[in-house]
Nucleic acid binder design. Structure first.
Lengths: 348, 348
DNA sequence: GAAACCACCTAAACCGGTTAAGGCCCCGGT
DNA sequence: ACCGGGGCCTTAACCGGTTTAGGTGGTTTC
């Protein structure tokens, strides 16, 4: 019993063939007699042989790993429940394929770009996921320059040379606005995400569109960086305005929860005095009081599809773009008809 | 201008030396004349040479990557804010060292163990982080069997052959109980985490100890798997008991927030009717209403120290165990004196 | 019956580094 | 004058796979 793990040469000599043939046999290449192939496979299995990743990487110039670079400020990183679920989805695909996920968390754009550069230069990964797409995203040019296979999450603003997996969140926002309108709300505010991020900007636009379609004023919008603290702050500013809204649509659940806190703090009852909707459908949104009306997507599935698309892109060089089922409005207890407009009546 | 990236041989011929000497020069090995070394370094820089990771991995049998395997049920994965911050801490160390983090997310123990096996067999990583330690953890034996450098987060129950980075959370729990006792509470409940996990079990023990020290009944404990839904459920069961508590100590913030929701739902005012404390000091805990009294630790720092310890362990084979500053009680608005015991007075 | 062809296999180069073994030269000691 | 020992450098083996070129032997083709 040798302590060392067997190499391809051990398998070759045990099977009485050359190591080249072993390689052919194990990679299902043509030119190997059927019974020889079977013998080789049997010997390999018997010896418990596993190909050496680094040797394979060296000769094939592939790393059997995919890369995910997350650029988030320390302030936001903990609050967002998207990534853990998304990563779990990626993993469910990769683990079956014997591939690994290389993760980087970086604070700013400079570090982000140099991380992609290093990943590519070191051939540490065979392809990368692009999340949190931005308006005028510098990564697009970089990916092309590095000739790195990639898949993006969401619909890039400009046309790009790689596939993307998009999830329509506009119809969810629109459904939320229509829901609030049908309840009788006319002054609806929006705590938007980062306008530099595509999904932040698009949710804001859908909000404006839906409001305009309903013939309502769409200017009650405050932009944030998606962080809890800015969500709370934005809520305060909306409520402090001259004509405070009777409903607020938040761009994510953590901010909506913070908004809930601000409302409670001011003695506003939700939903009697103020309706609130979130976005994401996080677990916790069902357990706050009142349970949050929110817009749910499926980050795990998103991860799965993105991983499959990226593998496809790496293999074929031309994977098709995929559209996921749109985000759905989930009506719970944080939305209700607005309070009777006592103040305005008195004002007349 | 060649399209191919330069290899060590290119550097060698450009510098007029053998490739072996280039290798020596670049790894600061002795036996290279100073001016020769300088010349080689200059040429390498000039050519933009970067050593090939896979070639290096093959000959040195190291992968220049560390592994993190997270075993969490899909249900819990999104809610826990610990990992994103912890990973950010790891990254801040690894990125300087040119190393990468290989992340796996697995659903159960079987997948967890086989993931460690694969990581080791493929030499995909040089060492691993062990999080969420369990009572009687099967990974300890596996790590030893695989001869894989490791560092654990928290204090293992049994003695182990690798270092660990521990953070005292017991004094935080005790401080929380003492704080509640000093406010006048006598019936204090605890929504505990998973008792199979060391930190879950230990927080529970510290709770019991602190209660006993105060001369109070320490039996109002309900175990959970740390998930939001079980946190809400446990809160309901505590409040439905014959002598409901006037304060509840939760084992993490998400469960505490769910508990807050349950209290509101029942018309209990927090903190007037019920005091609540959380654990983790997540961002959002400051923005719920009322702002959560909680126990804060520093997961980013934990990640940094764990990464440095693991690198040290890999390099020297005997890194020292580290104790981080203990978790601190952060008093906010969710704790107050208990309501006057009207019912009990009437009962006499 | 020679040429062409095919199926099956071997030998050896190659990927790009690391490293053990050894060669050369110059110096100091006896 | 000879030997020993560094300092500096080269050669070549090695890590463990993949892949190309080439070599059998046997069958088909005209």
């Amino acid at each position: 019993m040798s302590a060392r793990k067997p190499t391809i040469s051990d398998v070759a000599s045990a099977a009485g063939v050359s190591k080249g043939l072993v390689s052919f046999a194990l990679n299902d290449k043509p030119g190997v007699a059927v019974d020889t192939r079977d013998r080789i496979l049997a010997v390999a299995k018997d010896l418990g042989w596993r190909p050496s990743l680094s040797a394979r990487s060296l000769s094939t110039r592939t790393s059997f790993a995919l890369g995910l670079v997350i650029r988030r400020a320390a302030e936001v990183i903990g609050a967002d429940p998207f990534f853990p679920s998304f990563i779990a989805g990626i993993e469910s695909v990769l683990s079956e394929e014997g591939r690994a996920l290389v993760l980087s968390v970086v604070p700013d754009q400079e570090a982000e770009l140099s991380t992609y550069r290093t990943l590519a230069a070191d051939k540490r990964v065979d392809g990368v996921f692009l999340t949190d797409l931005r308006q005028d995203d510098k990564r697009f040019a970089l990916i092309e320059e590095l000739d790195l296979p990639a898949v993006a999450l969401g619909h890039p603003a400009s046309s790009v040379c790689f596939p993307f997996v998009e999830l329509d969140d506009t119809s969810g926002i629109q459904a939320a606005v229509e829901h609030l309108v049908s309840l009788g709300h006319t002054r609806i505010g929006h705590v938007a995400g980062d306008p530099a991020m595509i999904h932040g900007g698009r949710r804001r636009e859908s909000f404006a569109d839906a409001m305009t379609n309903a013939g309502l004023d769409s200017s009650l919008v405050i932009e944030t960086n998606f962080s809890v603290s800015q969500g709370a702050d934005a809520t305060r500013r909306l409520l402090d305005g001259p004509h405070p809204p009777t409903a607020i649509v938040f761009a994510n659940d953590p901010m909506a929860i913070a908004g809930l806190g601000v409302a409670h703090q001011r003695g506003l009852r939700v939903p009697a005095d103020l309706s609130i909707t979130g976005f994401d459908g996080t677990d916790i949104s069902a357990y706050v009081f009142p349970a949050l009306t929110t817009i749910t997507s499926d980050p795990v599935e998103w991860g799965r599809v993105a991983a499959r698309t990226l593998l496809d892109q790496i293999a074929t060089g031309a994977a098709p773009t995929v559209a996921l089922p749109p985000a759905q409005l989930l009506i719970r207890d944080s939305t209700a008809p607005p309070p009777p407009p006592a103040a305005e009546v008195a004002h007349r």
